[in-house]
Computed example of a mutant assay.
Amino acid sequence: MTNLDLYAKAEHLLGIEEATEALYDLYRSELDDYDVKTLLDVGCGRGGFMQRMISDGVKCKGVDLSALMVQECQSQGLDAECIDAKDVTGKYDAIVSIFDVLNFMNKEELVDFLESMAEKLNDDGLFIADINTLYGFKDVAEGTMSNDSEEEFLNVDAVFENNELHTKFTLFEKNEAGTFTKYQDTIVQYFHKINIFQKLEGLKLVEKQTFSLYDTEDKTLLIFKKR
């Protein structure tokens, strides 16, 4: 099981449903200003945002590196694949990466990814993503939390140091024998300064909005247009 599949198994215990819906509302409102007929959702998760956009008549495709997430999308009849976004074929009017997907990449990976996304946009295409601010990492994401039910117990321990957030997930899940199976892995996220996004060849940063998702100014929304 990959660390992203562990996250997928534990996500329902994290209490992020309200925040996720708020992000979907924000992205949808931004896309309303553009004539979007085709959309690529990178890091599509369980497909909630694609479902919203499909209801608006937009043709959507999703990719995610968690096979568990993609299986859930496919079970709903959504067009989703467990592949690297750089391997997607075709071009789109808009590409989105929702809920700090960009923070899962180091600087080199990030620049390579963004330049690749520019190649997958139609002329005048739009790319929208959100990232954690430094405050969002240091004062919101860092720390320890736990949650449990009769069938599961989750502990999350996150440490922010040297502009990296290392989050250890430990999940105990009750099995058919009545005992508990332990899953444990770590996910690393990286803080990125805005100037990285202002030096891209294929994308032009046209708007940035710092906003509050969990706490004061913990997120920044980035809107790019294809050069």
Rank of each mutant, 00 (worst) to 15 (best):
L200N: 06
F172L: 14
L154K: 00
Q74V: 09
F172M: 10
I131L: 00
N106Y: 11
V188K: 11
E201W: 01
T216P: 08
D25N: 02
G47W: 03
F211E: 14
M53S: 06
E164T: 12
G45N: 06
M53F: 01
Q51I: 10
F197R: 06
L4V: 02
H166P: 00
V101W: 05
D157H: 08
I187H: 04
E161S: 08
G47E: 07
V206N: 07
D148W: 11
L26I: 11
A80N: 10
K174I: 04
Y214P: 07
D35W: 07
C60K: 15
V159C: 05
L203H: 02
L39Q: 04
D32P: 01
K182S: 11
L4S: 03
V58T: 14
M50W: 02
N195G: 09
D32R: 11
L110E: 09
A22R: 02
L65D: 08
R52V: 13
E201L: 14
L110G: 09
D84H: 08
F49N: 09
E151I: 10
N147K: 10
D87I: 12
E119V: 12
T220W: 13
M53D: 03
D79H: 15
K120H: 06
C82G: 08
T89I: 15
E72I: 09
L23T: 03
L39R: 10
Y92K: 10
G45I: 04
E18I: 03
I128D: 00
L121C: 09
K61F: 09
A8Q: 05
S149M: 00
S149D: 00
Y214K: 13
D112G: 14
I54S: 05
V88H: 01
G57I: 07
T186P: 10
S29A: 11
M1G: 07
G90Y: 02
Q209L: 14
Y214Q: 13
S66N: 11
T170P: 03
A158W: 01
L14I: 00
D41E: 06
E152Q: 06
N195C: 09
D25M: 02
E142H: 02
R46W: 09
L110Q: 08
I223F: 11
N122L: 11
D64Y: 10
D157G: 08
G143N: 02
R46I: 07
G62W: 01
D93L: 14
T216E: 15
L40C: 09
K208W: 13
